[in-house]
Design a protein around this nucleic acid. Structure first.
Lengths: 171, 171
DNA sequence: ATAGGTGCAAAACCTTTGCGCTGAC
DNA sequence: GTCAGCGCAAAGGTTTTGCACCTAT
């Protein structure tokens, strides 16, 4: 069965989604599915727009925004808000769902998984009579704090590489 | 001892914070502390600006933004991002920390507490060598889903009243 | 043929900033 | 008297939209 983690199946899934909504498969949409699903880490609309331009397959920024929205709606991308004023996306279902730790000083993003937290969230929400569609748990820590504990977010993040990073916007 | 939950103590706390940073206590800052700490629910900068104007104590939007930032830094307000493009604030420490459920259709916000989730977050993060500064867990659900389970976010939210609500921005 | 899509430029939004004047300390 | 803060208007940055032309179905 098709899984969104496989680039080939991803395109098929997206085309099915489009067909169901009476929308069309265009060159730009195919390009974006192909390119985005080979990416790792988090990216903004502008990242995508510039990346595609550099790779010789330019897509207008307006279309990038429109298509990112569709891809999120189709469940191929997951959107996040890290409080820095830009929406960020990452591939969905590429691996187990994970939570994010943001360094308040350098804006590095560290990820980790916790099946226990997952399970507890579902369970508690169910107790309140809700069924979760998706969720976002972001924890904020400061470099100073991390340094004191011997683990710096910046160092962790650099070890991975690949995840785009932004300098802090405010003091 | 002063608690930020008490409006009188809140002003004292804020003045201490300002003094420590070499900043000044002004009429606008006092007004905002007084008015904001008698609010319930979540509010945006624009909500605050319009509210103060209506109450006959206008403060410019620029100052509202500047002061909200200070109040968050001082720990009197807690900021949230609900993915609707505007930063929202609420009083900090008014009651136990709580998580948010957002209705994807009507943007209603429902809150609930879960000491279990709290504890588990701290514990898991500690296992990874981090110390949490603060966190934000937002769960998204759709009205349709909620209706199917017999609990509608809109109905829950209306029962409370007081919390500012925004119509959905996108289709 | 007929929607829907694209690119461009303009608009919309939210938030921040520059600046001259005011006011707290 | 100084330095920070205020209001205003302008600038910034991100995302959305109107429109004329294009293209998948």
């Amino acid at each position: 069965m098709p899984s969104p983690g496989d680039p080939d199946d991803a395109l098929a899934l997206f085309e099915g989604f489009l067909k169901r909504k009476g929308l069309k498969t265009t060159a730009q949409r195919r390009t974006m599915v192909r390119r985005l699903l080979e990416r790792t880490g988090h990216f903004t609309a502008v990242d995508v727009h510039e990346g595609l331009k550099d790779e010789g397959e330019p897509v207008s920024l307006a279309t990038v925004y429109r298509t990112l929205g569709l891809l999120e709606e189709a469940g191929l991308l997951q959107g996040h808000d890290f409080d820095d004023g830009q929406r960020r996306y990452e591939r969905a279902h590429t691996r187990e769902h994970h939570e994010h730790v943001i360094c308040l000083d350098c804006r590095a993003v560290v990820e980790f998984q916790s099946p226990e937290i997952e399970a507890l969230q579902d369970q508690v929400l169910a107790q309140h009579g809700f069924r979760m569609v998706h969720h976002s748990l972001t924890m904020f820590a400061s470099c100073e704090t991390l340094r004191a504990t011997g683990t710096c977010a910046r160092r962790e993040a650099e070890r991975r590489a690949g995840a785009p990073r932004t300098p802090p916007r405010r003091t």
